[in-house]
């Protein structure tokens, strides 16, 4: 589904590149973890996969088509859903409106379907009362559930997550891992999670380690 060809990225000088000549392939219905030390460049790699930045070398292909040809805005809109460590929800909206807004922006097939969005939130453990409250009144775990629900409501086949369990307790972390697995296996999506938590990495189908500017398959 998603392929990186000779991918490279650096900030100021190529000699100080975060990674170079990266050739990886990510398949649908599979979850991947990317682990590595802080500052190794795993989040930067994720941002390239998410279409939030452009690589300095090489390219990323989605189903054989370079994503820069699709257009990064269009790519983010139709093909990728992102989960952040700090949730990044619309803080002036309720969980339900957050989902409806995301569905409208991404022109999801369920666009405007309030019942579908509510059902998705219910599945992630939010009550009807909670889903109408302002998101800022929810706990961190609940906000991350809303963020997960947002990716599930959209039609994107690629889900990328940057440290999604970084701010969560053990129970919520376990719940999140289960949800990502469901997204991969039940919705047949490709899930790529950047994490430094070994539990999360172990739960994923495959795990890559970024170290010394290179990716290595761990499992």
């Amino acid at each position: 589904m998603l392929k990186t060809n000779d991918l490279g990225y650096w900030y100021d000088r190529q000699e100080n590149s975060l990674f170079e000549h990266v050739d990886l392939e990510f398949k649908s219905g599979t979850s991947y973890a990317i682990v590595g030390q802080s500052g190794s460049g795993k989040t930067t790699f994720l941002s390239l996969l998410a279409g939030l930045d452009k690589p300095r070398a090489g390219q990323i292909e989605l189903n054989g088509q370079p994503i820069n040809k699709i257009g990064l805005t269009n790519y983010r809109k139709s093909h990728v859903a992102i989960v952040f460590q700090s949730y990044n929800l619309f803080n002036y909206m309720s969980p339900l409106n957050n989902l409806l807004t995301a569905m409208a922006v991404t022109e999801s097939s369920h666009k405007g379907d309030k019942a579908f969005a509510a059902d998705m939130l219910r599945k992630l453990g939010l009550t009807d009362e909670q889903m109408k409250k302002n998101v800022q009144k929810l706990s961190g775990g609940q906000q991350q559930r809303v963020a997960i629900a947002r990716t599930m409501c959209c039609d994107a086949k690629l889900v990328v997550a940057d440290e999604p369990t970084g701010n969560l307790d053990e129970e919520n972390t376990k719940f999140m891992i289960d949800q990502f697995q469901k997204i991969a296996h039940e919705q047949n999506k490709c899930v790529i999670i950047v994490t430094h938590e070994s539990d999360v990495a172990k739960a994923c189908d495959h795990s890559y380690r970024l170290a010394k500017h290179e990716f290595a398959l761990e499992s």
């Binding site: 805005t73 983010r76 809109k77 929800l89």
Partner: peptide, 13 residues
């Protein structure tokens, strides 16, 4: 800016 960032990440024009 975070709200704008989220909208951009969702692919909003």
């Amino acid at each position: 800016r975070y709200e704008i960032g989220v909208l951009l990440s969702l692919g909003e024009a």
